[in-house]
């Protein structure tokens, strides 16, 4: 088992407000790690720092290290475009562009100049197929993507993310806006993604963490409290806070 992403002593503050406090955590390749914790615990901030999305927040102050395959990805000298191409992201709400289904999945391939027309077409098809969407949209790729259902849109977002062959996939509560059946489909998809990518998900849903995650990290008020194999975290939490959160969430 290789370490894909290594976070060392990461501190993030938005203005006066310290959101991450000295977090160190490792994400292995070809595994799913779930980040859980109450709202405001910093799990989304941690996730967004893994592909530099916090760059979009004007007052973000960042110290510490994030290494992708041993290479630092924080800092002004790092090519942020390259980082984001390697570390893909799926957001809480499906955020497809007001373009056709095809254009959405091809978007990353086109801006990153990854191949000619035929190659792009083949990759779009492959990405859509690996998200089990081909049967549903294969015959109408030129239709507006925003006409799809919420669950289909989110799966297309995943297809869009994996089309550019990233190495890590980040998911920020990807099922928060979906119905139970769509949620199950996405979870099934995550288990498939594990074979190729390192996957990190933020979730509020304990059962979801239990169903899909190999490891789970519990965070509280910007600190990483406990991190270990999912069954251990849920069955034998070492920390009282973890225990209370998990019980509260179950009860």
């Amino acid at each position: 088992m290789t370490d894909k992403l290594v976070v060392r002593n990461l501190n993030i503050a938005f203005g006066e407000k310290q959101v991450l406090k000295n977090v160190s955590i490792t994400f292995p390749d070809q595994k799913i790690v779930a980040l859980i914790g109450p709202s405001g615990c910093g799990k989304s901030t941690l996730l967004r720092s893994l592909n530099r999305m916090h760059d979009l927040t004007p007052q973000a102050m960042v110290t510490g290290e994030v290494l992708l395959d041993g290479h630092a990805i924080l800092g002004a000298k790092v090519d942020v475009v390259d980082v984001r191409r390697k570390v893909g992201m799926v957001f809480q709400k499906p955020n497809l562009f007001p373009k056709s289904i095809f254009e959405n999945v091809a978007y990353g391939l086109k801006v990153n100049k990854m191949g000619d027309k035929n190659l792009i077409r083949a990759r779009v098809e492959e990405a859509i197929k690996s998200c089990y969407l081909w049967d549903e949209v294969g015959d109408r790729l030129d239709k507006p993507a925003l006409e799809l259902s919420g669950g289909q849109q989110q799966r297309l977002c995943i297809a869009r993310a994996i089309a550019i062959a990233p190495e890590v996939i980040l998911m920020d509560e990807p099922c928060a806006a979906l119905d139970p059946i769509s949620t199950l489909k996405i979870e099934e998809l995550m288990l498939g993604l594990r074979e190729k990518f390192a996957v990190v998900i933020v979730t509020h849903n304990m059962q979801q963490a239990l169903r899909v995650a190999d490891s789970t990290a519990f965070m509280y008020l910007g600190e990483l409290i406990e991190y270990g194999p999912t069954t251990e975290i849920f069955n034998h939490p070492q920390h009282e806070l973890t225990q209370r959160y998990i019980q509260g969430a179950f009860g």
Binding site: M53, G88, N95, F97, Y107, N112, R160, A161
Partner: peptide, 15 residues
């Protein structure tokens, strides 16, 4: 224009 469009494109490695 929703912020999510911008995030979506940037996350795909667009400048």
């Amino acid at each position: 224009v929703p912020k999510s469009y911008r995030e979506g494109a940037l996350a795909l490695g667009a400048t």
